[in-house]
Amino acid sequence: MIEILINIFCVLAIATSLTTCLSSKIIRSTFFFGITLFLVAFIFMIVGSNLLGVVQILLYTGGTLILFLFSIFLTGDWDYNNLGETFHKPFFAILISFLFFLTTSYLITTSETFEKLEKSFNGYKIFSIEAISSSLFNDWIFILELSSILLLATIVGCLTLLKFRKEVD
């Protein structure tokens, strides 16, 4: 049952990410991007990482989608050249992404480590939220504080950037 669910969600995630890339309008692209994030969050939950799934849906998807939507609404009339619709140097981009996919797939299929990992894969194990939070607040507290400082610096940076006004002569 879980395998079938994972297969369905994987196919849907790939399809929606492809649609994100190929959508003709940026607003549609953002909509399908949101669906992709939701599907990836569901995959996280199915494989047993409930905390990450909830964080991805509540904080990450909500936050980034609202940011994207507000940016589109604030600049809606400025896409005169239809930059969101057209592809620039698509063959080069296809070549690079195809090369990335091929090399990583080749390395994964030929690697002995990945064979061992596939054998030891336990799809039914649920990650303990207690263990994650304990590890986060004990072993990784310094990095956690650094990330909070990074968030604070982001707020200050955004405010500084958007406060700038071009002086009219």
Binding site: I6, C10, A13, L18, I43, V47, F114
Partner: peptide, 23 residues
Amino acid sequence: MFMTLIYTSLLISSIGIFMLLSK
């Protein structure tokens, strides 16, 4: 199941790279 998830992640990453380079 393992390889499905791995290939899905690689495909999503490749699509991301394509979008990053072509738009």
